[in-house]
Structure formats: C-alpha cells, structure tokens
Simulated scan of single mutants.
Amino acid sequence: MSQLPALLVAAIALVRDRRVLMVTARDRDVHYMPGGKIDRGESAAEAAAREAFEEVALELDPDGLVELFEVVVQAHGEPEGRLVRMRVFRAETDAAPAASAEVGELHWVTTADVDRCPPAGAEVLRRLAASGVID
C-alpha cells in the first residue's frame, strides 16, 4: 500500500489574554487554527499570512511571522495514515480579527477547549500551554 502524501499547511497563532484565536467553519463545531494549504510557489509564512487574511481579515507581513513549531499528526477527516504537517507561526497585531465568508465564528480558546479540536489543533493547544503562553 502506498503512503498518502502529507497535507502541507500553515497556520497562525494569535494569542491575547492567555487565549489563542481559533475558528469554526460554517455549520461545523470543530475548532481549528486560522490557516490552510500551502500553494505551489508559496512559502509557509506567505501561506499563513494569506490564509489569515482570507479567514479572519488580518493583514500580516509574512516576513514578520515567527515560526513556533511544526505539528505532524493524522489529518482530520482524511483516510487513516494521511498526515497533516502544519507549520504554526506566531502572529502579532493589534487589529481585530473578523470572520470571513469561509468562517462561521471566531473563538478565543484555552486547553479547556481541546476536545473540540481535531488532532492538529489539539496538539497546538498543548504545545502553546506547555510554552506558557495560553492557559
């Protein structure tokens, strides 16, 4: 059996008041990091900035994003063995995020919300909590 290619994605971690911004898609209750697939010819930081604008209306400079870590876990809603490789970047902005047409709602979450997240988001919450930036 051939190995399915990993899904390469980038996401932002916007932390305020010891909570991190997550979103839900329309008509779904799963919380996920603002982000998405890295397009051909695009760096992970460029993808994270583009997706942040598309999903939560934040204009971020890719050169100002600092990569925190990469999460590699089973991809949510994909066949067993298909992994997601999510590169997570710290976002710094005073702008107010706003839900776009692709996003149902914004949520400021802590580790108390880990059971509402797919595997990658849950791992991001655990790592952010371990580094002391969220509760």
Rank of each mutant, 00 (worst) to 15 (best):
S2G: 05
S2R: 15
P5Q: 05
P5F: 08
L7D: 03
L8G: 03
A11M: 07
I12P: 06
L14W: 15
R18W: 05
R19I: 04
M22C: 09
M22F: 11
M22P: 10
T24M: 08
R26I: 08
R28V: 01
V30I: 12
H31D: 12
P34M: 07
P34D: 09
G41C: 06
G41K: 13
G41W: 15
G41R: 15
E46M: 11
A48C: 03
A48Y: 05
A48L: 03
E51W: 14
A52I: 09
F53R: 14
E54S: 00
E54M: 02
E54C: 01
V56N: 15
A57V: 11
E59I: 06
D61L: 04
D61I: 12
P62K: 15
D63F: 01
D63W: 00
L65Q: 07
V66M: 09
F69T: 08
E70K: 15
V73P: 03
A75M: 02
P79L: 01
R85T: 06
R85I: 03
F89N: 09
A91Y: 10
E92H: 12
T93R: 05
A95F: 00
S100C: 07
L106S: 09
H107K: 14
T110E: 11
T110H: 11
D113V: 01
D115T: 13
R116A: 14
C117K: 03
C117Y: 04
V124T: 10
A130E: 15
S131I: 00
V133M: 13
D135C: 01
